[in-house]
């Protein structure tokens, strides 16, 4: 199924365009990286507030209100530019285990973030009180989310160096 998807994508004018314009892939990667700085910057600030290291005078509700929209826009840019990078070389990334590991880590980071914020909201005071300290289990999840983002970057960088799995198209 992946093979036929790659063959179809590779036959589209999109792949032809990205292959023929030498500036296209670096440009797409620049937007990918700028969007990473937005998502990772926002995740770092919000999760370090939950841990209680920075922004202790700000409620988590106020922080998430500020960072939700830019994060969602940046995630959409990451998905779009990520798809373009796959389209530029359809037989590469999706045939590497690391790419799918990265997608799983991404799902875990986004899912845990949604769960953590929902949990804090249920807790009432911890969410909207600027001076609130967050219970240890929540703080642990916040640290885990930050480690997941680091792992996502590591996986993303190594995709560029990894070999395809056995039997993948060359």
């Amino acid at each position: 199924m992946l093979e036929s998807f790659a063959a179809w994508l590779g036959g589209t004018p999109l792949t032809a365009f990205l292959e023929n314009q030498s500036w296209a892939v670096p440009t797409v990667q620049i937007f990918h990286i700028l969007a990473i700085t937005v998502v990772v910057g926002a995740a770092t600030i919000v999760n370090l507030r939950i841990v209680g290291v920075i922004e202790r005078g700000q409620s988590i509700a106020a922080l998430t209100a500020r960072f939700a929209a830019p994060s969602i826009v940046a995630l959409a840019v990451l998905a779009a530019t990520g798809f373009l990078l796959i389209a530029a070389e359809p037989t590469r990334a999706i045939f590497r285990y690391l790419f799918w590991a990265k997608m799983a880590l991404l799902l875990a980071a986004v899912g845990l973030t949604a769960g953590l914020l929902a949990g804090l909201k249920e807790g009432g005071g911890a969410f909207s009180d600027p001076a609130a300290r967050v219970a240890a289990p929540y703080r642990l999840v916040a640290v885990l989310i930050l480690l997941l983002w680091a792992a996502i970057i590591v996986a993303g960088r190594w995709i560029g160096y990894a070999e395809g799995w056995p039997g993948s198209p060359q």
């Binding site: 990286i33 990473i36 937005v38 600030i45 970057i153």
Partner: peptide, 8 residues
């Protein structure tokens, strides 16, 4: 990514 995120 962390440094630039905070700078932005």
């Amino acid at each position: 990514a962390v440094a630039l995120g905070a700078i932005f």
